[in-house]
């Protein structure tokens, strides 16, 4: 009877053991399966993100390429031809054989052409400043700030620290557009009389700090405007980070970091 009992116990123990093992196997299987599922979903998400970033980059690039072509055609083509036209007409104006009426007509024509040249220049510069490509971000920033300076009602300070490097065209253009957008925002909405831009070049990244002393605003407060959306997508396309630091009565402040990669 002793052996029979111990047999039962043995059977009982071993079946319990097998059940436990089977149960834990099931648990392990479920956990592994779920983990893999999550990893797969993450991977998919990652893929989707990078696809979206690529699409964003492509859209921005396409847009900018078109702008560049337009800016160049306007500036070097139409601008040049208008200048040539003005030169010829003002040469005619000095011809002693023409009548007073004709001279007045030519003078007016020259003035109109000069205005067109200025307009072509301004449009072309807004589309893409020629300085950016030839001389880089810092010079282009200086040039874009200069006409906005209206002290004492509004002044902009630009500070550069570190060795200004030439970056990829996309990165330089992206940063320029972001600063333009921020300045635009300050001038239109902030009621500020000062803005400060600091650009710091380190070996690993570029940091942009932008502040103004206006009424401030929070991008979370309300639906973000097109300008702010543009800033986000520019920075995202460059793989950078953006932080609207605080939005209070003390003005507006934002910091942006762009990593320096081989492509930047």
């Amino acid at each position: 009877m002793g052996t029979q009992e111990s047999d039962i116990i043995l059977i009982f123990i071993s079946s319990a053991l097998i059940t436990v093992i089977l149960a834990s196997l099931v648990v392990v299987f479920v956990v592994v399966y779920q983990k893999r599922n999550v990893a797969q979903r993450l991977q998919l998400q990652e893929l989707e993100n990078s696809r979206q970033r690529e699409m964003l980059q492509a859209t921005i690039e396409g847009q900018e390429r078109e702008r560049k072509r337009l800016a160049k055609d306007l500036h070097d083509g139409i601008g040049s031809l208008l200048s040539g036209l003005k030169l010829n007409l003002s040469h005619q104006q000095r011809n002693p054989e023409i009548s007073n009426d004709q001279a007045t007509f030519l003078a007016d024509a020259c003035e109109m052409i000069q205005e067109s040249i200025s307009a072509v220049r301004a449009v072309s510069h807004n589309l893409l400043p020629a300085t950016l490509e030839s001389f880089g971000l810092v010079q282009a920033l200086k040039e874009c700030i200069e006409p906005l300076q209206k002290p004492p009602s509004f002044s902009i300070h630009l500070g550069i620290s570190g060795e200004p490097l030439r970056l990829s065209h996309e990165a330089e253009l992206g940063m320029l557009r972001v600063v333009q957008e921020l300045l635009n925002n300050t001038i239109r909405h902030a009621q500020a009389n000062q803005a400060g831009i600091t650009l710091e070049f380190t070996s690993t990244n570029i940091q942009l700090l932008y502040i103004d002393n206006g009424i401030g605003f929070s991008p979370d407060d309300r639906q973000p405007g097109l300008g702010i959306k543009n800033i986000y997508s520019r920075i995202e396309a460059l793989g950078g980070e953006i932080n609207f630091k605080h939005q209070s009565a003390n003005g507006f402040s934002v910091s942006i970091q762009i990593p320096l990669t081989s492509s930047t």
């Binding site: 040049s80 040539g84 030169l87 001389f135």
Partner: peptide, 20 residues
């Protein structure tokens, strides 16, 4: 723009005229 003017002078141009 200034940057172009200064660069051309440094490269040895004798003068700089704007087309208009």
């Amino acid at each position: 723009s200034k940057a172009f003017i200064v660069q051309m002078m440094e490269l040895g141009a004798n003068g700089y005229l704007v087309k208009d």
